[in-house]
Amino acid sequence: MSGTNDWNAKIIEEFRANEGRVGGPFEGADMILVHHVGAKSGTERVTPLVHFPQGEGRTVIVASKAGAPTNPDWYHNVRANPRFAVEVGVETFTVEATELVGDERDELWEKIKAASPGFAEYERKTDRTIPLIALTRLDSAA
């Protein structure tokens, strides 16, 4: 687990040093830092993720866990505590998370896989339905 934590810490540091941009495998991707609160621990954690902006005040994150058989820990945390802060670029603001289901999820999932084929590979590696989480901004831009 410490390997993942070290990896995330480096991405978070690069994100904050470069106004939300990172290189390596995430070069050119829209990145977001999700400040989620542990469902059991109550501890705030920060996870860097790729996100897919959907228009004014809404973006979507993908609980892919690189195609692992279980959902990522952050998924359980945002389901249990759906209001939290995110960092996008140099802005930090509060969002509310909602899991997308049915046709809305399926249509968006096809668009995400077309835009980022790595997610299609993750889908092939797992039997679970990969959750999509919509983040809706709660506070207005300053």
Rank of each mutant, 00 (worst) to 15 (best):
P72K: 09
P72F: 06
D73E: 14
D73M: 13
W74R: 14
H76V: 04
H76T: 09
H76D: 12
N77D: 08
V78N: 07
V78G: 02
R79S: 08
A80F: 14
N81A: 04
P82I: 11
P82R: 09
P82S: 09
P82T: 08
P82K: 12
R83W: 05
R83S: 05
R83F: 03
F84L: 11
F84G: 05
A85I: 09
V86W: 09
V86G: 08
E87N: 15
E87H: 11
E87P: 10
E87F: 12
E87R: 13
E87S: 15
V88M: 12
V88F: 12
G89R: 15
G89C: 13
V90T: 15
V90Q: 15
V90W: 15
E91Y: 10
T92D: 07
T94M: 14
T94V: 14
V95R: 07
V95H: 05
A97M: 10
A97W: 11
T98W: 02
T98I: 01
T98S: 07
T98G: 02
E99G: 03
L100F: 07
L100A: 05
L100T: 02
D103K: 01
D103I: 01
E104N: 01
E104F: 00
D106S: 04
D106I: 01
D106E: 13
E107H: 04
L108E: 00
L108I: 03
W109K: 01
W109E: 00
E110N: 11
E110F: 02
E110Y: 02
E110L: 11
K111T: 09
I112R: 06
I112E: 04
I112K: 06
K113Q: 08
K113Y: 00
K113R: 05
A114L: 10
A115M: 06
S116I: 09
P117E: 06
P117F: 10
P117Q: 08
P117D: 08
G118F: 09
F119E: 00
F119W: 12
A120G: 15
E121I: 13
E121A: 13
E121K: 15
Y122T: 02
Y122I: 06
Y122R: 05
Y122V: 01
E123L: 04
R124L: 08
R124H: 14
R124G: 00
K125V: 06
T126Y: 07
T126F: 12
T126K: 11
D127Q: 13
R128E: 04
R128K: 06
R128C: 00
R128G: 00
R128V: 03
